[in-house]
């Protein structure tokens, strides 16, 4: 009897603890829901950049890790902070770096324009296809996203090489007399970037063209506008959000691309992503690698902010 009472009491107590916990959880779930991903990103996304900034101002040293500490407690208790801007002035003065940066931006910019020129008609065509065809075409655009990027770049090594299909076709057509080495040239890097990033251009374009009200085009046509005039004055201006989003999705990662210039450009095409990787891997110069990363980040801050701006606008509009 008394045993029963005790167990009842304890189970009541247990229940009240549980409900207390439940109440707390009900009150604070919003806080937890935000706190966990926020903390994750602060630790693993933001803090690393601060560290890179720190290392970029250190001196290389034969140590583990191979750079000097920025601050040291001197014996008399004063904190000494040594900031070295040498790594940055090294980048600034070395023509190699300057040219590599410039080359990366030019290649990324031209590739973006080419993606836009190839991608726009495709996105436009998909939007104007019948519903069943449209779904299949969209699936075909998304499919490359899911297959290995590395292996798709590798495929071009075969096509562009001296015994590759491009040479076979050009010789067959009589354009070339003997095989030409297309691999390990700037041309190969362009082909690789445009090919790999084309879906990133097409999908935002498709999204913005799909929202476009087709009755506007019909109205323009009814009022006597030629198709090309309708396109230039109605369709094109209304698809600008898609053009900007797609262009940023191509331009920003392409500027820092490593795999494509390495596999298709060989040593002949200087791009900053490859330079950074080598500075870090082969030369083991972490401070300079960090300075290269910071300089690249500064270069890309404006395009990133444009992208963020449009991204935020899109989400609000939806």
């Amino acid at each position: 009897m008394s045993d029963n009472a005790i167990s009842n009491e304890s189970s009541i107590q247990e229940r009240s603890t549980l409900s207390w916990l439940d109440d707390k959880l009900q009150q604070s779930w919003k806080f937890l829901l935000l706190l966990i991903p926020y903390a994750w990103l602060l630790i693993f996304f933001l803090a690393p950049f601060i560290l890179v900034l720190k290392v970029s101002m250190a001196e290389p040293a034969y140590a583990r890790p191979p750079y000097t500490p920025l601050w040291e407690w001197a014996e008399d208790g004063y904190l000494t902070i040594t900031l070295i801007f040498e790594n940055f002035s090294y980048l600034w003065e070395d023509e190699l770096y300057y040219e590599t940066y410039l080359n990366s931006v030019v290649i990324a910019f031209n590739s973006t324009i080419m993606c836009l020129l190839i991608g726009y008609p495709i996105a436009y065509g998909i939007v104007r296809s019948s519903t069943s065809v449209r779904n299949i075409l969209l699936l075909l655009i998304i499919l490359p996203f899911w297959t290995s990027f590395l292996l798709r770049v590798y495929a071009w090594m075969g096509i562009l090489g001296q015994g590759g299909e491009l040479n076979d076709i050009l010789i067959f057509l009589g354009i070339l007399d003997e095989p030409h080495q297309f691999l390990y040239t700037q041309f190969a890097v362009y082909v690789g970037i445009v090919y790999s990033y084309l879906p990133f251009m097409i999908l935002p374009l498709y999204a913005s063209l799909e929202k476009l009200d087709m009755t506007l085009n019909e109205a323009a046509a009814d009022l006597g506008a030629k198709p090309i005039t309708t396109f230039l004055t109605v369709t094109l201006p209304l698809s600008i959000p898609g053009i900007v989003a797609g262009s940023m999705l191509v331009f920003i990662p392409a500027t820092g691309e490593y795999v494509i210039p390495d596999l298709l450009g060989g040593g002949n095409v200087a791009m900053i992503g490859r330079q950074l990787f080598n500075e870090f891997g082969a030369n083991k110069d972490w401070p300079v690698a960090s300075a290269v990363a910071i300089a690249l980040l500064i270069l890309l801050v404006v395009p990133m902010m444009i992208y963020q701006h449009y991204q935020a606008k899109e989400t609000e509009a939806a």
Partner: peptide, 10 residues
């Protein structure tokens, strides 16, 4: 959009 080399290094 962050270039992979930057994310990796940091």
């Amino acid at each position: 959009v962050m270039p992979e080399v930057i994310t990796g290094l940091s």
